[in-house]
Design a protein around this nucleic acid. Sequence first.
DNA 1: GAGCCTCGAGATCT
DNA 2: CTCGAGGCTC
Length: 295
Amino acid sequence: MITRAGDVIPKVVSILPADRTGKEKMFDMPTHCPVCCSLVRRLAGEAAVKCVNADCPAQLKERIRHFVSKKGFDIEGLGKKQVEQLVDQKLLFSFADLFLLTQEQLMPLDRMAEKSAHNLISAIDRARQISFHQFIFALGIHHTGEHAARLLARTFDTLADLMAASKEDLEAIHGLGVITAEAIAGFFASPENRALVTRLMDSGVCIVNSPPEPLEQRDHVFAGKTLVLTGTLTAMPRSEAKQRLLALGAKVTGSVSKRTDYLVAGADAGSKLARAKDLDVPVLDEERFMAMLES
DNA sequence: GAGCCTCGAGATCT
DNA sequence: CTCGAGGCTC
């Protein structure tokens, strides 16, 4: 059901018995590790399928993608394909190697020439300055996503403090469970992981205080809300209404969904009005809308 | 200029 | 997840 021409699945099939079932999503990276495949064969149909090989290239690629993702080091221009090449070409053996890459190494890669290579190098360079919670998230500690990472960053003053925390210290943090606490303590207990952290710092990575939250007009009723405009407005064209809403920090979208905060219904509103009523989205007529806008 | 890659927006499901 | 836009390579 998943197979498309040129897909990776046939490669996997060739080393698995014919009666194999499911678990294709383990292999959306074109290379695979023999240990993964044998596990899939044994565990097919069961809930937990995870490769136990520490050197599994598929896992390495996933870890790197996690590391560079927006909530982590936020390195733009590094997508799946490029990560794949970098690992396959043996330019990356861990995410700490990212900071050692040079433009010359990048340029021979597919879809990379001077411009892209240069852009990527500068993106990596900029990423050296990183906030504490993004740094923690990027490490890819089990059970530690964005929320836990922010919690830890708020609780500990420095990375050294976090690394020195015992399982008991971590369990005592309100909002962290025993499983997460154990995963974090376990992560930093590993000499390999501690070495990775050291290498990052040696490559010029610098944890900085989070930039101050941009203070907008957070007080306005529409700030941060999502609105849909429909029907004809008399006081101003729809485009102007949209501009003013955007300026207040609101979002204006085209169709009503569960996540719409208000539908603004001008004269002759049609199907969107019906849909809003259906989804219990608050509807504002023009008069009420104008009043709120001016408030 | 075509095709590849990445990214963000919006929609839908869970 | 899908779609479309934007940037870049070839």
